[in-house]
Amino acid sequence: QVLVIRIKIPNSGAVDWTVHSGPQLLFRDVLDVIGQVLPEATTTAFEYEDEDGDRITVRSDEEMKAMLSYYYSTVMEQQVNGQLIEPLQIFPRAC
């Protein structure tokens, strides 16, 4: 299952990153890619938005798994409803 992660860049749009092994993705892998997209920032975590629009911070593989399972459940709903699949949007955080 292909996963598209949209890395939101403060004040300048976003970069889409296509991942072919989504469920095996590790927290460190995401930080590495964010580091390539935002080389001047030191990113130690990132956030995503849940169904209520609240930002949830991801700082570990466990939290990463929770984010992915949340995302895959929303994708299934979108597929069932015949909607366009939205990329998983993440917001890098420099701490």
Score class of each variant (00 low, 15 high):
residue 80 V to P: 11
residue 63 E to W: 00
residue 94 A to W: 13
residue 27 F to C: 00
residue 39 P to G: 08
residue 90 I to K: 02
residue 82 G to A: 07
residue 30 V to T: 01
residue 53 G to S: 03
residue 51 E to A: 13
residue 28 R to L: 05
residue 19 V to Y: 11
residue 55 R to V: 03
residue 46 F to K: 02
residue 66 A to D: 13
residue 65 K to M: 05
residue 27 F to W: 03
residue 42 T to I: 10
residue 88 L to T: 01
residue 38 L to S: 10
residue 92 P to W: 02
residue 92 P to N: 00
residue 64 M to Q: 03
residue 65 K to C: 05
residue 6 R to L: 01
residue 13 G to S: 04
residue 80 V to C: 10
residue 48 Y to D: 02
residue 38 L to N: 14
residue 14 A to K: 06
residue 39 P to R: 03
residue 17 W to H: 04
residue 93 R to Q: 14
residue 57 T to E: 09
residue 23 P to H: 15
residue 11 N to R: 08
residue 50 D to E: 04
residue 26 L to T: 15
residue 12 S to T: 14
residue 68 L to S: 01
residue 40 E to L: 06
residue 35 G to D: 15
residue 42 T to H: 13
residue 33 V to I: 11
residue 39 P to C: 03
residue 74 T to K: 10
residue 86 E to H: 09
residue 4 V to R: 15
residue 79 Q to K: 13
residue 87 P to I: 04
residue 90 I to V: 05
residue 39 P to A: 04
residue 72 Y to S: 12
residue 17 W to D: 00
residue 78 Q to M: 12
residue 56 I to G: 00
residue 52 D to I: 11
residue 57 T to L: 13
residue 48 Y to W: 09
residue 16 D to G: 01
residue 5 I to F: 12
residue 37 V to G: 01
residue 2 V to K: 12
residue 72 Y to F: 10
residue 28 R to Y: 03
residue 12 S to K: 14
residue 91 F to W: 12
residue 44 T to R: 09
residue 13 G to D: 15
residue 80 V to W: 06
residue 74 T to E: 07
residue 29 D to Y: 00
residue 95 C to M: 06
residue 77 E to N: 12
residue 71 Y to F: 03
residue 65 K to T: 10
residue 53 G to P: 01
residue 31 L to R: 01
residue 69 S to P: 02
residue 93 R to G: 09
residue 64 M to T: 14
residue 7 I to A: 01
residue 77 E to S: 12
residue 2 V to M: 11
residue 44 T to Y: 06
residue 8 K to M: 14
residue 69 S to A: 13
residue 17 W to I: 09
residue 55 R to D: 01
residue 47 E to R: 04
residue 73 S to R: 12
residue 62 E to W: 08
residue 39 P to V: 02
residue 1 Q to Y: 09
residue 61 D to A: 01
residue 15 V to Q: 06
residue 46 F to M: 06
residue 10 P to N: 08
residue 17 W to T: 13
residue 88 L to F: 03
residue 32 D to R: 07
residue 80 V to S: 14
residue 70 Y to M: 15
residue 67 M to C: 07
residue 43 T to N: 06
residue 70 Y to L: 08
residue 3 L to A: 01
residue 47 E to W: 03
residue 64 M to K: 04
residue 52 D to L: 12
residue 82 G to V: 06
residue 8 K to P: 04
residue 12 S to L: 11
residue 40 E to S: 10
residue 57 T to Q: 12
residue 55 R to C: 03
residue 24 Q to A: 05
residue 41 A to K: 13
residue 19 V to H: 08
residue 1 Q to M: 13
residue 67 M to R: 01
residue 63 E to H: 05
residue 62 E to H: 10
residue 43 T to Q: 06
residue 63 E to N: 06
residue 14 A to S: 14
residue 73 S to A: 09
residue 18 T to Q: 13
residue 86 E to T: 09
residue 94 A to C: 13
residue 7 I to D: 00
residue 47 E to V: 04
residue 93 R to I: 14
residue 70 Y to W: 10
residue 90 I to E: 00
residue 28 R to D: 12
residue 20 H to Y: 05
residue 16 D to R: 03
residue 67 M to D: 02
residue 62 E to G: 10
residue 32 D to P: 02
residue 50 D to W: 05
residue 18 T to A: 07
residue 52 D to W: 11
residue 69 S to L: 08
residue 90 I to G: 01
residue 68 L to W: 06
residue 88 L to R: 02
residue 46 F to T: 05
residue 63 E to D: 13
residue 32 D to G: 13
residue 53 G to H: 05
residue 26 L to W: 05
residue 26 L to C: 12
residue 74 T to Y: 14
residue 71 Y to A: 03
residue 76 M to P: 10
residue 11 N to C: 04
residue 41 A to Y: 06
residue 22 G to T: 05
residue 42 T to K: 15
residue 31 L to E: 04
residue 4 V to H: 14
residue 26 L to V: 11
residue 49 E to S: 06
residue 74 T to Q: 12
residue 74 T to A: 11
residue 45 A to P: 01
residue 91 F to Y: 14
residue 14 A to Y: 14
residue 62 E to N: 10
residue 89 Q to S: 13
residue 35 G to F: 06
residue 30 V to L: 08
residue 80 V to K: 13
residue 66 A to S: 12
residue 65 K to E: 08
residue 51 E to W: 08
residue 24 Q to N: 07
residue 35 G to T: 13
residue 8 K to N: 11
residue 22 G to C: 07
residue 83 Q to Y: 08
residue 88 L to V: 03
residue 73 S to I: 05
residue 77 E to I: 10
residue 92 P to H: 04
residue 52 D to N: 15
residue 91 F to L: 02
residue 38 L to G: 05
residue 62 E to V: 13
residue 81 N to G: 10
residue 71 Y to T: 02
residue 79 Q to G: 09
residue 56 I to W: 04
residue 6 R to K: 05
residue 87 P to F: 07
residue 32 D to A: 08
residue 1 Q to R: 06
